[in-house]
């Protein structure tokens, strides 16, 4: 028993790409499958876990999400749902993208789901030209080919430029 209490209070330090350090309680960190796997294996006795792909602003958001979800009991699903929608409200695309990348890297499924859903909702009614820019996709169609593909699904373009 003593050891489990000790474990609960254990903290670890995460370091963002821009060098900021975050002290995190272990049960909060366990929301991340990546961190969980690192803690399970003995090789991660290091005091500071570097997260080279995640900047401090994003990491703070991620840990806020993890803390809320780690602390809430499973019976409070409704409360968590409203936290989730409030959490992403008014967030700009850049922040959402960083959040998706961080959640993917740290393997936090719930966060990846809600952030990806938010991005999907945002691009749902955007013209394809804009979506192309958002995802940095190079247009490899000739103008004729692009027109032909568009013609195949003409109904889907009604009301679009």
């Amino acid at each position: 028993m003593a050891s489990s209490i000790e474990n609960n209070n254990e903290k670890l330090t995460l370091k963002s790409s821009d060098g900021e350090e975050f002290l995190v309680e272990k049960h909060v960190a366990l929301q991340s499958t990546l961190l969980q796997n690192m803690l399970d294996s003995d090789c991660s006795s290091a005091d500071v876990i570097p997260l080279p792909k995640i900047d401090a602003r994003t990491l703070a958001l991620v840990l806020g999400y993890c803390k809320k979800h780690a602390d809430a009991s499973s019976s409070k699903q409704g409360e968590l749902n409203s936290f989730d929608s409030e959490f992403l409200k008014d967030m700009d695309m850049g922040a959402l993208f960083n959040l998706v990348l961080a959640a993917n890297f740290m393997e936090i499924k719930g966060l990846l789901d809600i952030a990806a859903q938010k991005i999907a909702d945002t691009i749902k009614d955007k013209p394809h030209q804009e979506v192309r820019e958002i995802f940095h996709v190079e247009n490899d169609y000739t103008p004729e080919e692009e027109a032909a593909v568009r013609e195949e699904n003409r109904w889907a373009f009604e009301g679009f430029p």
Binding site: V100, L101, N104, L112, D113, A116, Q117, I119, A120, D121, I123, K124, D125, P127, H128, V131, R132, F135, V137, E138, N139, D140, Y141, E146, V149, R150, E152, N153, W155, A156, F157, F160
Partner: peptide, 22 residues
């Protein structure tokens, strides 16, 4: 992430338009 995480959440109408991306 783009295809598995994001595009799979779109309705078919949006996806048919996005065939024009590349």
């Amino acid at each position: 992430i783009i295809f598995g995480g994001i595009l799979s959440r779109l309705p078919v109408r949006s996806l048919l338009r996005l065939m024009s991306v590349s």
